[in-house]
Design a binder for these strands. Sequence first.
DNA 1: CGAATTTGACCCGCGC
DNA 2: GCGCGGGTCAAATTCG
Length: 180
Amino acid sequence: MLKLKSTTNTSPQSQNPNSLNPICDHPPLYGNQLEDPLYFDIANYLMFDEDFGSNDNISCEKSQGVVDCSNGSFTSPPFANNIKPRRVVNKYKAQDDCRFAFRTKTQLEVMDDGYKWRKYGKKMVKNSPNPRNYFKCSSGGCKVKKRVERDCLDANYVITTYQGTHNHASSAYYCTSSKI
DNA sequence: CGAATTTGACCCGCGC
DNA sequence: GCGCGGGTCAAATTCG
């Protein structure tokens, strides 16, 4: 499960992108924004190519940010009122191929989402000066993939696309500066 | 020395 | 059928 915070531009990280958490030596994706200096700033959550349909098993609703693809569906983080979530392509609608993307304001190249990934490709894509990186979940038998690329329109943002459903639990940790 | 990453080659789908 | 572009493979290289 990937937990994301609501869309504001007031995170400590956005004030000081290079700041390091003195207690945690990894990017604390989870936890309380006020406690985690490196809390990510999610700007736009879902960026899909086609109109989002209602006749599949993907559900979206405004709620405090939780993305969970473990059972073939996900509930989106809160998204701006004028942002309509759209599905990527119809061929990915199968439960085992749940696919979604989001855009994150971060200086990090790859966000730590609690799963262990193995990089298997890197490619320059048309109309973008930034490379696209391809990852597979390194857990045995798990076929989930993700793509990570920096937004060609605003290099402050990273676009992450997940494809598939994990067949195992996340190794996610919960970290706050006062507890670890 | 094993694991992880890099990177050029290859494959495949799609549009013309 | 051909070329282009995105995605994947796998050998080479780098890293811990």
